[in-house]
Design a binder for these strands. Structure first.
Lengths: 254, 254
DNA sequence: CGAAACGTTGAAAGCTCTCAATTATGGTGG
DNA sequence: CCACCATAATTGAGAGCTTTCAACGTTTCG
């Protein structure tokens, strides 16, 4: 394994339900709601209220659905461990991957407007997450400005990220940007930015980057031959971060 | 002209400042904040407060900047008339168009998280808009749940829209989806869905759809030869909406 | 009227895709 | 523990779509 999970995934024995304070506080430091949860000077009751609308869900295994397209929107989810992809299948049967989610990131924010989940969310490995009732969050956020701001921030961030893939860039640039971005997000959670495991298949990567799976294979090989990365199965090491950044810059920079 | 502007653009003589109620109310029916502004049963004071944080800006002419990349984020804008593009220029000097904005739509929501505008916003023709101080909106929205919900909705919508261009589709499908989408958005504001004027250049369209300008020309010609549309300069008529929808479906449907 | 920007059209090159075959990996059951 | 199967990943060759480069026609506006 390229990195160690800091968040224990062995809470399978604990029944789903209200998070106990100890667990919740420990997790909150890496969670997307960290800023709201751990905000200083906060009324302890408010903090308790926020924790009370969280449910730790059971464990999801590879292939399990966190939610399905067109299901009524009820909750958003914070990743605790593992990786989830969001995707949808078009009428021609082709799968489009919208995003990959790492520990600490939020899923479901794009369901608020349509009031239904606009895509499927599928676990790529063993996943645990926190479920937040959205109606409850909305209510609470009117009394808790920090929470409201955090929601605004998270959503605004998502709007910006979406345009990452927008440009018409070469396959090499796309793959470089993908790996650099993944490394940066891992680093933000305390993992290694240069060594990690790809939980998703080459096909998933291809469907995310809008390339053919064969092209993903070829480009990974090409980057390795240029001594930019080292790939072994799903283990990846970024050998030359500067070189990779140079490739990815035109995508990540703007 | 393919459609009539319902919103007068001749307020250039009025000094920027607080919107008078008459104007504001008239506009609100087509504005993105309509739901919040015109919500029934609302405290008249709250409504007045919302209107008070709006400023009608002066007129922008073609090429004028509404805001510039990296400027500190202070306000979001609601389009009243005309068209604006948001774009950024990469280090190679190539322009990427992120979006086009029609009357009633909001600009600047992607600046909340970075706290700076992440792109330029440029008027494509004669533009008028309303400026909302964001800090003031945030404060007000804690007392005005409808406003908060409206903000959530608008942002969530933007997250979803961004994935419209994501797929790897043919140039024909992209152009068809672009025109159908534009028509639908015009229709949502009371204009014709099948006859309108493209305020942006072929190059802008190309930079938005990630095609070469020459390809845009060729595809428009191709669609016209198939009797799907009629193009004359920047005037467009969708002659066969069903056929165009069939082409665009795989992009717009999911 | 003339310059400059915009738009169109043609031909050749390049990148990625598709199709096909081969190799590697991981899980299952004997 | 190993054989076996299904899935995933890799590699090669040819086709297709879009891009690039270049030239020409058109519109706009000083």
């Amino acid at each position: 394994m390229g990195h160690e999970r800091r968040i224990p995934t062995d809470n399978s024995l604990a029944p789903p339900g209200i998070a106990d304070d100890g667990d919740a506080m420990a997790f909150c430091t890496t969670c997307a709601f960290g800023a709201a949860c751990t905000a200083e000077g906060y009324d302890k009751n408010a903090l308790r209220e926020l924790h009370c609308l969280v449910e730790h869900t059971g464990i999801y295994h590879e292939g399990d659905y966190v939610f399905r397209k067109n299901t009524p929107f009820t909750a958003i989810y914070a990743m605790r461990a593992g990786m989830v992809k969001t995707c949808l299948v078009d009428e021609r049967g082709r799968e489009h991957v919208l995003g990959f989610f790492l520990p600490g990131e939020m899923i479901g924010l794009n369901a608020i407007y349509p009031e239904r989940y606009p895509c499927d969310a599928i676990a790529l490995d063993t996943v645990t997450l926190c479920q937040f009732s959205f109606p409850a969050m909305v209510t609470l956020s009117t009394r808790m400005p920090t929470l409201q701001q955090q929601l605004f921030k998270l959503m605004s961030k998502d709007i910006g990220n979406a345009s990452l893939l927008a440009g018409d860039h070469s396959a090499d640039e796309r793959l470089a940007a993908f790996l650099i971005d993944l490394g940066a997000r891992y680093a933000a959670r305390g993992f290694s930015a240069t060594r990690f495991r790809l939980s998703m298949s080459r096909t998933d990567i291809a469907n995310y980057l809008h390339l053919a799976a064969e092209t993903v294979s070829r480009v990974l090989r090409r980057l390795q031959n240029q001594n930019l990365i080292h790939v072994s199965g799903r283990e990846v090491e970024i050998v030359d971060p500067a070189g990779m950044n140079a490739l990815a810059r035109c995508i990540l920079q703007p």
